[in-house]
Amino acid sequence: MQPGLYHILFISTVLFFIGVFGFFTRRNLVTMLMSIELILNSVNLNFITFNKYVWPNKLDGLFFTIFVIAIAAAEAAVAIAIIINLYRTHQSIDVENAEEMKF
C-alpha cells in the first residue's frame, strides 16, 4: 500500500504532540530543546506532504522547509549558549533548579 496524505499527516501531528508533551514534562533543558526540534521537524514533514500531495505545482512549502531547518539551527545555537551559561551560574541544567524568580 502506498502511504497517502492522511498517513503522513497523522505521523506529523503525532510528532508535534510528542514534542509538546516532552516540552511540558521534561525537566532537563537539553531534552526540552530536543522536544522543540521535534515540533519543528513535524512542521517540515507537514510542508513537504502538503507540497507533494495537495499542491504539487507549487514550491512554497519546499522553500519554507529549508528556511525552517536553518532557523532551527540558529535557535539551537543561541539556546545552547544560554544553557551553557546557565550551567556556569547554577551548576545544573535542570529547570527545577533555576527558580530565583517566582510569581
Binding site: 533543558l29 539556546a79 544560554i82 546557565l86 533555576a98 524568580m101
Partner: peptide, 9 residues
C-alpha cells in the same frame, strides 16, 4: 541567565 533561558525556550 534564568531570564534568558525562559525567554529562548
Amino acid at each position: 541567565s534564568e531570564a534568558a533561558m525562559k525567554m529562548i525556550l
